[in-house]
């Protein structure tokens, strides 16, 4: 990259945003029971055009934007400012998506042909479980960033993610147990996915325990970074090992999707996807709020914090 960074033009953001929207639309259509070929072809064409202009013709814009975001996110002061701007939108987005997704899913989507109305807990269970999983992945990526580039904000983010991720894992376990009662006749069963989630919960507790045990905040942050990075490798291996263990002992696994993975009816899938995205945004909101508080505390002696709090 040259020393004099050219400004990133506004239409670059427009294109990137459009590309993102098209990608999300394509993903949703891909999940649909009978993928609409026309939409996929047109969408794919659109995406490749956008990709050509954005990434092939003007790759330096992506690079510049990445470098700039990286530096701004890495600086506590800029992070505080940017996250303050983003936060209201994220709150509105997550609140709106969760309201629509949950009300649609709990009240208006059709009952399941075998499980009746009890299956509706998936609108809580699946978003919580996938949020807990995503949270650990995010924590591992923050761990890598913090260890390789010594970025302070990544350490703070890990501290913020761990309790919320643990909460989501707990919600997934509890809703799984409640769902298990009418489905299997018992609250707990050593189902492969529930067991993986239990271990994920333990791993969150480990990160939090280590974080709390070390007095020096920087040292605690880096220790938690290493643990979550090791943990991310472990999460993958645990997943495979538990699947293998489960197949060895042949228990029953609860599933709403069936064997094919995409047999769920679109009227059930749409609210599920909406509440999943709502949970992700809620996760982002919670992490941002905790990170902002922690940043203020850590930087409390600097002038910008005194100006913010005045």
């Amino acid at each position: 990259m040259t020393e004099t960074a050219r400004p990133v033009p506004g239409h670059f953001y427009l294109w990137s945003g459009l590309g993102l929207l098209v990608a999300v639309a394509l993903y949703v259509f891909w999940q649909a029971p009978q993928p609409n070929r026309t939409v996929l072809v047109v969408g794919g064409y659109l995406l490749s055009v956008l990709f050509y202009f954005g990434a092939v013709r003007y790759p330096h814009w992506y690079w510049q934007a990445l470098v700039r975001w990286y530096h701004q996110l890495g600086s506590p002061r800029h992070f505080y400012r940017i996250s303050g701007v983003l936060l209201p939108y994220l709150v509105a987005l997550s609140g709106g998506l969760l309201l629509v997704g949950l009300i649609w899913g709990l009240a208006f989507s059709p009952p399941h042909h075998e499980q009746g109305n009890s299956y509706r807990i998936i609108y809580l269970h699946v978003p919580a479980a996938s949020g807990a999983m995503m949270g650990y992945m995010a924590m591992g990526i923050c761990g890598l960033v913090s260890l390789v580039w010594r970025m302070k904000m990544a350490e703070v983010a890990i501290k913020a993610i761990a309790p919320f991720g643990a909460t989501l894992a707990a919600v997934a376990l509890i809703t799984g147990a409640i769902w298990g009662r009418p489905t299997w006749g018992t609250y707990w069963i050593w189902d492969a996915r529930l067991t993986s989630m239990l271990i994920l919960f333990f791993m969150y507790l480990g990160v939090m325990g280590l974080q709390n045990a070390i007095a020096d905040p920087r040292q605690a942050g880096r220790a938690a970074s290493l643990l979550s990075l090791v943990g991310i490798i472990n999460v993958v291996i645990v997943r495979y090992s538990v699947d293998w263990w489960h197949s060895l002992h042949q228990g029953s696994s609860m599933s709403i999707f069936g064997a094919g993975g995409s047999q769920i009816h679109p009227s059930m899938l749409a609210p599920l996807l909406i509440s999943m995205f709502g949970t992700y945004f809620l996760f982002a909101v919670a992490v941002l709020i905790r990170t902002r508080t922690e940043v203020l505390w850590r930087e409390r002696r600097s002038r910008w914090v005194k100006e913010v709090l005045r």
Binding site: G206, G231, W244
Partner: peptide
Amino acid sequence: ILLALLVLPLYVPVLVFGAG
């Protein structure tokens, strides 16, 4: 105790395949 809390979840794959 903290060591146990950190390490035991990491031991799951080895235990599963070993005892398995």
